[in-house]
Design a protein around this nucleic acid. Structure first.
Lengths: 146, 146
DNA sequence: TAGCTTAAAATAGTGTACAATTTAATAGTG
DNA sequence: CACTATTAAATTGTACACTATTTTAAGCTA
């Protein structure tokens, strides 16, 4: 095997993970100006997306939805609580669980956030078919790693 | 427009960015045990990949390759220097530039790292065609955002 | 029911990321 | 040549992200 072949896998351009990592970061960077307008970071935004759908959820379930653990979520949720978008309270049935509940202010934020996905979509240069293919491939990877 | 339509874009499952973000994180997590063996974090690993290719590079160029700025790279490079894989030295032609150079120990690490891409590849459940399609779509997005 | 195990969050510690600012060096211009 | 503008890293401050550990609560069993 030549030197080139031996080390081919170690080139950035031959990696699949690197463009995933770079693409993810760059799109999140694109979100920033729009999320700044509603005073959310990207992590806070995806946490709110779950809250807008579920209204009430414990930290474990939220973490499973977002692929994040309590080490990451605890400070994020405390921040969202301090902004008045959610409340945090131990479950009465099982006090190990912390129940996160959306507030009215949190619900109201949803209307301000509706424009965000479209604005991002318009700066990602893929047509609907390509986006669907990409989406399916990403979930194929994610689901195969569970 | 119905409530459902109005808010459809705000569901995690309808976002393209979220699976990108999740997929990137989960694959990087898969790297960890293999990178632990050679005592590198993922960021240190991709920085070393550039060094293995280029031998010598300044921080700005390295940052353009990795989509990272000096704020992120400075501590990463100091760490790699402390591990003996690179040296950091101001350019004599233009002292604003910091020249990063790979050491012999850094070169030697390349051999230990050759097995990493294959091990990751085998836990990403895509065939060669799918991987190629994904790769091309990711770079299409990345390049369209420049 | 006391003791062991499991489970859910929180905490501690390390390492990115990134925006904004600062510092130092170089380039460009009247 | 002095002055201004630009450039490259480093620094500062905030916010994740993750591993490992700790704390507290609940379930389980001899």
């Amino acid at each position: 095997m030549s030197e080139n072949e031996k080390y081919a896998g170690l080139k950035l351009e031959n990696q699949l993970c690197f463009p995933l990592y770079a693409c993810s970061k760059e799109i999140i960077r694109k979100y920033k100006p729009y999320l700044d307008e509603i005073d959310l970071t990207y992590t806070q935004y995806i946490a709110m997306m779950v809250m807008w759908e579920r209204k009430e959820v414990n930290v474990k379930t939220l973490g499973e939805s977002l692929y994040l653990d309590s080490g990451t979520l605890t400070p994020v949720l405390k921040k969202l609580e301090s902004k008045g978008y959610i409340t945090r309270k131990r479950s009465e049935q099982d006090e190990r669980n912390l129940v996160v509940t959306i507030t009215e202010k949190g619900e109201a934020l949803k209307d301000k956030a509706t424009c965000v996905p479209g604005k991002i979509g318009s700066c990602v240069n893929l047509n609907a078919d390509e986006a669907k293919i990409l989406y399916d491939l990403l979930y194929k990877i994610i689901n195969s790693m569970k």
